[in-house]
Amino acid sequence: MEVRTIKVFTTVDNINLHTQVVDMSMTYGQQFGPTYLDGADVTKIKPHNSHEGKTFYVLPNDDTLRVEAFEYYHTTDPSFLGRYMSALNHTKKWKYPQVNGLTSIKWADNNCYLATALLTLQQIELKFNPPALQDAYYRARAGEAANFCALILAYCNKTVGELGDVRETMSYLFQHANLDSCKRVLNVVCKTCGQQQTTLKGVEAVMYMGTLSYEQFKKGVQIPCTCGKQATKYLVQQESPFVMMSAPPAQYELKHGTFTCASEYTGNYQCGHYKHITSKETLYCIDGALLTKSSEYKGPITDVFYKENSYTTTIK
């Protein structure tokens, strides 16, 4: 009895394709271990004539594949690729409408935090270190965002349907971005203890939790000093293409032309909904596939993004 075979390709990165001759009487799992086709788990399936010449994702289970996976995804987590594939199996079914010149995501599976993050990423200057993220990001900007969303979920250790947080998501993504040249110098002034300067680099240099107003941050924000008295913390120097200011959701007025974009969060910790506000020729609110415009805006804002380049204080 002759062994019926077909020729397929296996890959971990969709760049390096490895030619395989597979036995049609055995499952993919018996031949390769966990195997995925377009995100779908085909591990328990036997090869079919229609699979001839198709590319299958496999887990990096030998040295060659491990090197290829690390170079593309910059992670050695053995569960990463499987999590990416199972997320992709959902995100490829989502709709990605162009809204006001940006790629958004039609609401499904509690994905409003991903839509808000995706919209924000198209408006701030950011370059990702893992080629996987950078490639998928370019495709997302062009309207094909399924891979990018699935990668975000995998890097953030999230599953489809789980509630997510924009600030946490951005923080994970910033860790995989090139923020080497970003720098922030802060000064804390206390009447009792004097003053202390701190220099922050990388992710810490672009994120701040405690106030939404970048102007206020430049002037000074009140913080408790270690001595128990009130101290003032203010920005001395900022070198970065953008800054992200966050605070627990509270009524906040966004003035046209003073910011790049913002995240609105309605609801409580267990259950809520994100919308995205962007400042173009007027203010726009993007909620999944829905767009509304207004000249002014007041609502429960939790993150505001500002364009920056270089700032030095005039406070002496």
Rank of each mutant, 00 (worst) to 15 (best):
H276T: 00
C285F: 05
F174Q: 02
G29P: 08
F80C: 06
V21K: 13
A205I: 01
A132V: 02
V67I: 14
K275R: 14
T120V: 12
T258N: 03
A108T: 02
L102N: 10
F56Y: 02
F70H: 09
T5E: 15
G272H: 05
T302F: 00
T226Y: 09
I124P: 03
T258Y: 08
E52M: 10
G210A: 05
A205K: 04
K93P: 11
V236H: 05
K275T: 11
V42S: 08
P131S: 02
L102R: 03
H273E: 04
Q197V: 12
K191A: 13
T120W: 11
P224W: 14
L200Q: 11
T75N: 11
C261M: 01
R184M: 05
P78K: 08
E162D: 14
V58D: 06
R167E: 02
L291I: 13
Y297T: 01
D38E: 12
E71T: 12
V221C: 05
Q270Y: 15
G82W: 06
N61P: 09
N110H: 03
M209I: 15
F242N: 02
D135F: 05
Y36V: 08
T226L: 10
E125G: 06
Q270M: 14
S104L: 08
K92Y: 10
V166F: 01
E162L: 01
K106Y: 10
L133S: 02
Q175D: 06
P248R: 13
K275A: 05
I45V: 12
A140I: 12
T198M: 13
P47V: 08
S181G: 14
M207K: 08
A132Y: 08
G101V: 06
V206C: 03
D135E: 13
L200H: 05
A140F: 09
G267S: 15
Y113M: 09
G220H: 02
K95T: 13
L65F: 08
S310E: 15
Y297W: 04
A289M: 05
P131R: 04
T116I: 01
L283F: 04
P241Q: 08
E71P: 05
Y113H: 09
V304D: 08
T278A: 08
H276P: 06
Y172N: 13
L17P: 00
P34R: 12
G257S: 02
Y265H: 05
H273D: 06
T199D: 08
E144F: 09
Q237P: 03
Y96N: 04
F305L: 08
Y138W: 15
E204A: 12
T199V: 14
R66M: 13
C112W: 06
A132T: 04
G143C: 07
T192I: 10
H273M: 01
R139P: 02
S246N: 01
C285Q: 09
G143K: 02
A231F: 01
T11R: 04
C261F: 06
T10D: 10
K219Y: 05
Y297V: 05
V188S: 07
H90Q: 13
V12G: 08
M207L: 06
K183M: 09
K44R: 11
K307F: 05
Y265K: 01
F128A: 03
K191F: 12
I286Q: 08
F242R: 03
Y113Q: 01
L88F: 05
T232W: 09
P131I: 02
Q196H: 14
L186P: 00
D63M: 09
F32T: 12
D109Y: 03
Y73R: 03
Q230E: 13
S181L: 08
T169A: 06
L235G: 04
L291R: 07
W94A: 02
A262I: 07
A289C: 04
Y84N: 08
V188F: 07
C190M: 00
G194W: 02
Q122Y: 08
G299K: 00
V21F: 10
G267C: 15
K233D: 07
T11Y: 04
N178L: 04
K7C: 11
R66P: 02
E308I: 10
G82S: 14
F217Y: 03
Y252A: 08
K280P: 03
A117F: 02
H51W: 04
S181C: 11
Q20I: 09
P248E: 02
A108H: 08
I315W: 15
R167P: 00
Y265L: 00
V8W: 02
L121N: 01
F148Q: 08
S86K: 10
C227S: 02
Q196G: 03
H176Y: 14
P224I: 12
N309T: 15
I315T: 15
S240N: 01
V58W: 04
Q98P: 12
K44H: 13
K95W: 07
T159P: 05
E239N: 08
Y284F: 08
Y274A: 10
T19V: 13
S50W: 14
M24W: 05
H51S: 04
L291N: 09
I315V: 15
V185M: 08
M207Q: 07
Q197Y: 07
P249T: 07
C182L: 04
Q222E: 09
N309V: 14
M245N: 11
F174R: 08
L200T: 11
Y274V: 00
E308Y: 00
Q98C: 14
T199Q: 09
G299F: 09
D38G: 11
I277H: 11
C271D: 14
V236D: 05
A289L: 03
K93S: 12
Y274P: 00
Y252D: 10
D165R: 06
S104C: 08
K298V: 14
K219A: 13
Y155S: 00
M85Q: 09
V189H: 10
L59S: 10
M170E: 01
T103I: 12
Y36T: 03
G194F: 01
S263G: 00
K280W: 01
T313Q: 15
V58K: 08
G194K: 06
N61E: 08
V160F: 01
H18L: 05
T313D: 07
G82P: 14
Y252K: 03
C182E: 13
D109K: 04
F259C: 01
V221E: 04
T91A: 07
I124A: 05
T226C: 11
L17M: 14
D63F: 11
L186R: 08
V42H: 09
K191N: 12
L235F: 01
L186I: 14
V67M: 15
C112E: 05
Y72R: 11
T232R: 05
T292R: 08
L290Q: 12
F128P: 08
Q122G: 02
I6K: 08
D62Q: 05
D13M: 07
V42Y: 13
F56K: 04
V236K: 04
K293D: 00
C285T: 13
R66A: 12
Q134S: 10
K44W: 09
Q195S: 15
Y252I: 11
G53Y: 11
M244Q: 02
L179W: 06
C225N: 07
I286S: 00
C182W: 09
Y137T: 03
R83M: 10
H273A: 06
T10F: 10
A205H: 01
E162C: 00
A247K: 02
N187L: 11
F80P: 06
S86M: 13
P47F: 02
A136P: 03
G228S: 03
Q123Y: 05
M170S: 03
G39K: 05
E308Q: 05
N157Q: 10
D13F: 00
T312S: 11
M209S: 15
P131H: 00
F242I: 05
T43W: 06
T302H: 09
K293T: 13
N14P: 06
L102V: 07
T116V: 15
A250C: 07
F259N: 12
V189R: 08
